[in-house]
Amino acid sequence: MKGGKIDQVSNNGFEPKIVGFLCNWCSYAGADLAGTARLKYPANLRVIRVMCSGRVSPEFVVKALRAGADGVMVLGCHIGDCHYQAGNHRAAKRIAILRRLLNYMGIDPRRVRLEWVSASEAQRFTKIVKEFTDDMKALGPNPMKKVKV
């Protein structure tokens, strides 16, 4: 569900804020493992632990983007591994609709990414976070975030 290829430009040292909704049973454990294995990943990610990727309603994503995130990642168990059977099936469908709707409203759908990361995939976790952070650096600041007045 990747967006188009984004040119790697440094964008004047811009450090994006990234919100990640991580499923407790797999991706969060994967992130934990990355930590204990001392794998490096960008500090741009702010993790919100959820019980299942199916818990993430599209409103969460939009709210995060509005409240200041430059990008939002939803990470869940691989299909077949969800602890609640089909939570990730729902996430896959919701995010697909969400990305199209965002596009119509003028919000770049590349700012939202859904991936599956298991508890043992620390490497994959770091790779995805790094890739997404680079993508957000290239996209630049999210224009829809609320500017504090």
Partner: peptide, 14 residues
């Protein structure tokens, strides 16, 4: 506040 109100309606109607 843009875009939540209308986003909610559009998404819920999908």
């Amino acid at each position: 506040d843009f875009p939540m109100y209308h986003f909610i309606r559009f998404y819920h109607m999908a």
